[in-house]
Nucleic acid binder design. Sequence first.
DNA 1: ACAGATTACGTCAGTCACTGACAAAAAGCA
DNA 2: TGCTTTTTGTCAGTGACTGACGTAATCTGT
Lengths: 220, 220
Amino acid sequence: MAATSAEPCQTPAEAGLRERKKARMRESLLDAGLRLFHEHGYQGTTTEEIAACAGVSQRTFFRYFASKEDVVLEAVEGVDEYLYAALRSRPADEPPFTALRNAMHEHWGYLDRESLHIQGSAMGVITGNPELIDLNARYCLSRQLRLAGVIGERTGTDPDTDPRPGVLAAVFLSVITSAHQAWCGSGSRDTDDLAEAIRDRLALVPEVVCGTWEPPATAS
Amino acid sequence: MAATSAEPCQTPAEAGLRERKKARMRESLLDAGLRLFHEHGYQGTTTEEIAACAGVSQRTFFRYFASKEDVVLEAVEGVDEYLYAALRSRPADEPPFTALRNAMHEHWGYLDRESLHIQGSAMGVITGNPELIDLNARYCLSRQLRLAGVIGERTGTDPDTDPRPGVLAAVFLSVITSAHQAWCGSGSRDTDDLAEAIRDRLALVPEVVCGTWEPPATAS
DNA sequence: ACAGATTACGTCAGTCACTGACAAAAAGCA
DNA sequence: TGCTTTTTGTCAGTGACTGACGTAATCTGT
C-alpha cells in the first residue's frame, strides 16, 4: 500500500485526506487545550470544553488523547526537542555534563520568551503494582529515556547496556525539577529567576556529589 | 483550650477515645488498602472496596485520605523513615553523598525482606498551572524536602537558604528511581538485583557528572 | 462515478475517583 | 442526664474515561 498510489496528486500534501484531517484534528485539539489551560487553568478546564472548543464531541477528544494530561505532555515533548538539538550541536570534546549545562543554557535563550515552558519530571514506580507506572511515567520516563538516548549518541555509549546516560539524564532532569520547585516556592514569576536557579543548581552538582561541603554555604 | 483540661485520666492512653478511634480507623483503612492493592493491584481496587473492607462507607474513606494515591503515599513515607534514621546515624565525617550511599545500603538490609518497598519519586511542575503541582507533588516533593531536611541536619546547612541539600536529595532520589526503572524494565523480580542496580548507579554518579567518560563502558 | 469495505464520529450508558450538603448517631462535656 | 461537638452514612452531583453501536465520511476497486 506504499507505492501503489495512483492519486490525482492535486494537493502537494504528503498523504491522503484522512491523514491530513487527523493531523489537523489533533493540532486543533492541542491548541484548544493549551489555550483553555492558559485561560482557565488546568483543573478549570474540562475535556468537554476542549472538545467543544475544537468542535467535536468529548468522545472524539479521547480518541486523540489518552488522557487530559496527554495534551500537556505533547506540548512538553515539543519543547524538549530544542534541548536535544542544542545538546547535539555542542562540541564533541565537551564532557557530557558540561555539554548538558551549556545546552540548557542555549535552550533557555530559545525558550525565554516562549509562551509556554512546561517541565515534566521524574516518574515513580511502585513495586509490584505496574499499573502505577503509567500514572507517573507520563511525567518523566519518556523524557528521561529520550534524553538518555541523545546523551548516548554524543558519548558513543548505548543507554541499553551502559547505565551512565540514564543516570546523567536522571540527575540532570531532577536538578531542573528541583530548581523549578524552588522557583515555584519562592513565588517569583520571573523566568530569569528560574533560569538562574537552574544554572546555579547545575553548577553545584559536582561539588555536591564529589566531596565534603564547605561549611558556610554560598548563602549570598 | 489547651490547659483547662480537668480530665478524669482513667485510661492510660495518651488522648481521648475519639482520637484513638480515629487513629485506629486510619490504620484500618491503610491496612485494608495495602492488602487489597497487593491482592488485586492498584487499579483493580476501588475506594469503595477499601472502605467496605474496613467496614465504613466510601465517604468516610475520603475523610481519612484525600485520595486513593494517598494510601500508597502514607506507606512510602513510613518506609522512608528507616532511610532517614540510617542517614542520621552515619559518622559525621563522611561526605554527604557517601553517607547517603552507605545509609541506603544499610537501609536496604533492613528492607530486604519487608513485604513492601515502595519508591515514590520526583515531581513535575507546570509553569503557570499550579494545580498540576499537586498532581505530582504527591509523588516526590514531600520526600525530597524531608530528605533535604535530614541532609541539612547532617551537614549543618539550612535547606531553605542553601540549595545544596535539595540538589543532593533530588539527585539521589532520581538515581534511585532510575535504577528502579531499569530494574522494572529488566523484568527481574529479584530484589537483590534492584539493590545492585541502585548501588551501581549511585557509584557512577561522581564519574558521570565530573568529567569525560571513558569510552568503553563497564559493559561487563 | 458507484458499490462495498474501512475508518472516524456522535450518542448513550456506565464506571470510578472525589466532593458538598444534610441528617442521624456517637463521644465529650457540664 | 441534657447539650454541644465530632463523626458517619446517605444522597446527589461533577468530571475523567471507556465500551457499544449506529451513522456518516473516506478509501478502494471497477
